[in-house]
Amino acid sequence: MKQRTFGNTTRSVSEVGFGAWAIGGTWGEVSHADAKQALNAALDAGITFIDTADVYGDGRSEKIIAEVLRERGGASPFIATKLGRRLDPHVAAGYNNAQQLNDFVDRSRENLQIETLDMVQLHCPPTEVYYQPEVFGIMDEMVAAGKIRAYGVSVEKVEEGLKAIEFPNVSSVQIIYNLFRQRPAELFFREAQRRNVAIIARVPLASGLLTGKMRADTAFSADDHRAFNRNGEAFDKGETFSGVPFEVALEAVEAVRRYVPGDATMAEFALRWILMEQAVTVVIPGAKNAQQAATNARASTLPALDEPTLAALRDLYQTQIAPWVHQRW
């Protein structure tokens, strides 16, 4: 497993991480046993970065991570969690409440059984938050108090990422980046690199579309966001299938398939495409079982994609996908 330096911190992390949303909830049923096996398989494969959030299963994801790490012992991976989505209502003013933000962090510290959290990210707050220096001041105070080592942001839009990195102590930005969401590479990645900010690429498989296993008649359970959030009913539409209409995306997946080499799965290929971008620090595919976790990790071992393939994939994005998503996010 190849390593990359995590922005302006002193840590190096595996370039493929483990996204722990699915083992928390809203991805259909994932048993406790399967969740633990998925995380163990990722760690066995050399993954040293775990991304979670306090709202993933209302703390379930964080607690499972703590359980697995306690059972394994040894050195702990880099764990990044998030705060903010527990606010009710989820409005910008809530992020100015220092006591509430501290309470969220304390709850995550308890769930994860960690005294000082490696990383806490503002969890896709309203855009106005990025124009409120006092919010970032609260995060600075938590660093000074020893509750967290560093902080970052998880954003919906490129513009939010560009604004966030103007704050000098923002160590990372988590953003959707995949074959169906290529806009971050145009400007944002260059600016993040210039400021030595780590990039966490999320939704790398477009909610499973880029595994190549879905069809028009694929059914999703009622508690799976791919069933209930296609039009942004519960949270930002871009989090589900990267915001691309399902039928449009299925056609594009078939176009991608012709470039996947015979010794790789489409998921591995899609993750390797992301890792071709040196500005990306870590990509965080999710996994609901051990096999998926092991497959994701193998992306780090694939050879580099050649320029004709990269050019073809850029053209595919521009012609089939960009009209649906490029200017929106």
Rank of each mutant, 00 (worst) to 15 (best):
S154K: 04
M1E: 01
H225K: 00
V16M: 07
V170M: 12
A192V: 07
Q121M: 15
F269I: 04
G243L: 07
D224Y: 02
A270L: 05
T48P: 04
I176E: 09
N289A: 11
Q3L: 13
K237C: 06
R328P: 00
I65Q: 05
R257W: 05
E159H: 12
A219P: 00
A42P: 01
A98H: 08
G57R: 10
A255G: 04
P245E: 05
G28H: 03
A216T: 11
P204K: 10
M139F: 15
I23F: 01
P323T: 10
A93V: 05
V173G: 11
L69H: 10
T116I: 04
D140K: 03
A304R: 14
P308N: 04
Y177F: 15
G262Q: 13
I114G: 01
F78N: 05
N196S: 13
V325P: 00
I23K: 00
Y130N: 00
F136D: 02
T26H: 12
M266C: 08
R202A: 10
M276W: 01
L83S: 03
R109V: 02
P245I: 10
I284W: 07
G212C: 05
L275N: 08
I138K: 04
F6M: 09
D103Q: 14
T301D: 14
V253Y: 02
L187T: 15
I79W: 03
D217F: 00
R183C: 00
E233G: 01
E254N: 12
A249H: 02
L69N: 06
Q193C: 10
R258A: 14
G238H: 11
L162K: 12
E277K: 13
H225C: 01
R230A: 00
G137E: 12
A252I: 07
A297L: 11
K63G: 01
S61K: 06
A322R: 09
I199N: 06
R272H: 04
G161K: 11
N102M: 12
R70N: 13
D54K: 05
A264C: 14
L310G: 03
K82V: 09
M214Y: 15
E29H: 13
T5C: 09
H90K: 13
L187E: 13
N178V: 08
Y56K: 03
G152W: 12
A22S: 15
V135D: 02
P125N: 05
A270I: 04
L209P: 00
R70F: 08
R190L: 09
R226K: 05
A252E: 01
I50C: 11
V135Y: 06
I50Q: 10
V68H: 11
S242K: 03
I138D: 03
A145V: 02
V68L: 11
F136I: 02
T295M: 13
P77N: 07
F167Q: 14
